[in-house]
């Protein structure tokens, strides 16, 4: 309050300088990735800060049927996981958030505990389960396996949200003759827009990025998702490592996420913090 004008200005300059450093630290690797992806052939090995704007790497990676196939696989997996986990979680959240029944607290505890399970601890059991379901080496195995980290989180967040919706609205709907299913579908779902967007986005990001299950449950190239595809790109020797192609593929995979992050920043953050900081 009592600080002088120049003091305040210095303070602001310092803050903006720090902003700049943090932004540079955060963004430079992306710049470098994109710049490298736009250099062709051997040019990638010359360190020049300006890109050439050559699209050879993109042509190469996009004419590669396998990479396109893994992009498609990733999209199918991510959208299916979002749809399925939200569908299941909304129903569970209605039960846990709005109906008082014995078993409610134990189930909430179970959901919380499951969300903390390390994936590795399930690997052999899940492997067996996926074989038994006939899903081994199909993207169905991933859609199923990804429920482990999306479903508990979605149930948790949607339950806290659902619990805070006004009780009398539900009672008005009951008086209007709605079944529980209709209450959820026609009354609550439209009122939960923000929570659905948050949880859906987080489920999308997590499924799009998952690596270990995708590496383990998929055997052949045509069924892979992009993180594994990118991790497995290699050259014939260490010196022929196709960094240009890798950077181009990485850029393609990253762009949708950057767009999502920039567009839905608020929703993502509120989803992240909904589970953690609600008190």
């Amino acid at each position: 309050m009592v600080r002088s004008n120049t003091g305040r200005r210095l303070h602001r300059i310092a803050i903006y300088a720090l902003f700049g450093i943090v932004a540079l630290y955060t963004l430079f690797p992306f710049y470098w990735m994109i710049a490298s992806s736009l250099k062709s052939g051997q040019a990638i090995f010359d360190v020049t800060f300006l890109p050439d704007l050559k699209f050879n790497n993109y042509q190469a990676i996009l004419s590669d049927g396998v990479f396109l196939r893994s992009l498609l696989n990733s999209l199918i997996v991510a959208f299916s996981v979002v749809a399925l986990s939200l569908l299941l979680a909304v129903g569970a959240a209605y039960a846990l958030g709005r109906i008082d029944f014995r078993g409610r607290s134990p189930i909430m505890l179970l959901v919380l505990a499951v969300s903390m399970f390390p994936q590795i601890a399930l690997l052999s059991g899940l492997f067996e389960m996926i074989r038994w379901l006939g899903l081994y080496n199909t993207i169905g195995s991933l859609i199923f396996a990804y429920m482990i980290f999306t479903l508990p989180f979605n149930i948790w967040v949607l339950t806290t949200f659902m619990r805070d919706l006004p009780k009398q609205i539900e009672e008005a709907a009951i008086m209007d003759g709605c079944s529980p299913l209709r209450i959820v579908r026609c009354i609550f779902l439209p009122m939960m827009g923000p929570a659905l967007i948050s949880t859906g986005l987080l489920a999308f990001i997590a499924s799009w990025n998952e690596f270990m299950f995708a590496l383990t449950f998929i055997l052949t190239d045509e069924n892979r998702t992009v993180p594994v595809a990118i991790a497995l790109i290699s050259g014939s020797s260490r010196y022929e490592f196709p960094y240009g192609a890798i950077m181009a593929a990485s850029t393609i995979v990253t762009v949708p996420l950057i767009v999502l992050a920039l567009l839905f920043q608020k929703h993502i953050v509120s989803g992240l913090t909904a589970g953690a900081v609600k008190g």
Partner: peptide
Amino acid sequence: GVMRAIILIPWSIPVVVSARMWQWM
């Protein structure tokens, strides 16, 4: 607000991509 959006990016991209990116750098 812009800063918040910027710092969200490294977290939201695949770890595999980050690893590849740094491996190259």
